[in-house]
Amino acid sequence: MGAIGEMRVAFQLNGEPVELEIKPNQTLLEVIRRDLALTGTKDGCGIGECGVCTVLLDGWPIRSCLALAVDARGRKVTTIEGLAQGSELHPLQESFIKNGAIQCGFCIPGMLMIGKALLDEKPKPTEQEVRTVIAGNLCRCTGYVKIVEAILAASEGPR
């Protein structure tokens, strides 16, 4: 008993049901990037330190590099590809562009996912709350100021 080879799993990805064969030793990140060919989610440190692989699981941000793909069974996974509605960008994405928060861009999918999760939970975060939430998402270009500004600008808070 017990699987080594392929297992069949089904979950919701960006609002659409998906069903595929995976191996139990695959992380959610590997399945998203390789099997589902959604490469917006980045593969950085691989050990949960950098945050570029952040996706939402049932609305909560997680590190997809440390989650086994089998644990996504029956749940809702949201990746960066799920933010825009067709050709219309998510307000947070617009805000990142408008505020010049993007430089090399590698950390941005993770920043957007963690930022979206924060705004979903707290539509009017303080600057401190934004900084606390993005603490685990590393950016080596911007010094974070514009990223923080972009998230605050997209919030319902007074600006």
């Binding site: 949960g48 945050g51 952040t54 699981l57 909560w60 941000p61 590190r63 963690i114 999760a117 998402n137």
Partner: peptide, 8 residues
Amino acid sequence: GSPAIRNI
């Protein structure tokens, strides 16, 4: 850790 760690 960080928020995304505390969620799993």
